[in-house]
Amino acid sequence: MHGFDLFNGDADGLCSLHQLRLCEPRSASLVTGVKREIDLLRHLPEGPSLEVTALDLCFDRNAGHVRRVLEAGGTVQYFDHHAASLCFEHPCLRTCIDPSPEVCTALLVDRHVGGRHRDWAITGAFGDNLLSVAEKLAQERGHGDEATLQLRNLGLLLNYNAYGETVQDLHFHPQALYEALHAFESPFDFVVSSPHYQALADGYRDDQQHAQSLRPHRESDDGALYLLPAAPWARRLSGTLANALTQRSPGACVALLTARAEGGYVVSVRTRAGVGADVLCRRYADGNGRAGAAGIDRLPEAELDRFIADYFRHIERGT
């Protein structure tokens, strides 16, 4: 069989595949992309006997291609933490899908491999903004403040690198970044020794300077909404900035709308418990996500006013 490993290009996807292949090495073609390119199974070739592993990719966006692989005689192993209403049973389909709010794909893989590379799972959880979960796991590992901060910063930077309209917006193609970190069994060694880490840290610091003067386009007692320009720095910062703004005002909701080069917006939404960012975003074409963090890949300019009104009504009512 020809093996394929498909993974989201963000911190969660990178750390998931890295753990899995440290424990279960194999030769496989890698398929990945920017954060929001989650229908990656469409890139699989036609033909029989594909051995596919998919990580941190919404099953519902790939269900048809999963079925195609299986019907051609292939096998699929699927790890993910997004809702999967289209999931089905098949003797050659193995799934580990759990949409619980305190789980990410790196933690699911951590369960699968028996915690053998937990520091990478903690890094993925930090990158996926599961801060309290990651901090608890770091404490259980006996990590002090400095070591925990290193894992947190690494998760943030790996996640930061994945945001952009195209891979040209990114500092590193996610496949190249995966290949760089896969040379390191320990995330601490990657932080100290890899030039990729320093390049990401420098890029993040430079991009952050553009965001210093950012102010809400509209805000209320329940949250705020920001409009970002169609610029590479804004596209790169959109996810990590949404997380940072949420951490700055615990309990408040945040929406970041980043202008796309060809028109319209990419939307990132972060909400407090019980509000349902995914419920809001799924009202729009190309919208998906989880309860606390969701987004819309393409919001047309004509729907901007509708979304703004819908967002503030949603976070006020909590439904």
Rank of each mutant, 00 (worst) to 15 (best):
L137C: 04
V66K: 06
R282K: 09
A201T: 07
L154D: 03
N161S: 02
Y284I: 10
L214C: 03
C23Q: 11
D221P: 01
D286G: 07
L108V: 11
Y197W: 14
A261Y: 14
Y311A: 07
S100D: 10
G164T: 08
I97R: 04
A302T: 14
Q208P: 00
I97F: 03
D222W: 13
Y163E: 09
C96P: 00
E219C: 14
G127E: 02
P45G: 10
V192I: 11
L304E: 08
A54L: 07
Y160P: 02
P195N: 10
A244V: 05
I296N: 00
Q175D: 12
L108A: 08
F307V: 11
P250N: 06
E165Q: 12
C281A: 05
H143T: 04
L157I: 06
A121W: 13
H217D: 04
A273E: 15
D169S: 01
D10S: 02
H210Q: 12
S220I: 11
L304A: 01
Q212R: 11
P45H: 10
R94A: 15
V275E: 04
H210A: 09
H217I: 09
L17T: 07
A244Q: 07
H117A: 06
R118Q: 11
D12Q: 11
A162D: 05
P45S: 09
P101E: 13
V69M: 08
S220V: 14
T105K: 03
H18C: 01
T95V: 12
V254N: 00
R272E: 04
G155I: 03
Q139S: 14
L44D: 04
A147Q: 10
V191L: 08
R260Q: 13
A261C: 02
R290E: 09
T258A: 01
A230T: 12
L20F: 15
M1A: 12
G142A: 03
V267Y: 11
S193R: 15
V52G: 03
D145G: 05
R42V: 14
P216L: 15
P91I: 14
Y311P: 07
G287H: 00
S193N: 05
Q247G: 10
L14K: 13
G264Q: 05
A242N: 03
G3W: 07
L156F: 00
H65D: 15
L237P: 01
N8E: 09
R215S: 08
E46T: 08
D56V: 11
T32Q: 05
L41W: 03
D305A: 10
A242I: 00
E146S: 12
H143W: 15
L22A: 11
E37T: 10
R306C: 11
D60H: 09
F4G: 07
E185F: 08
G295N: 08
A259D: 02
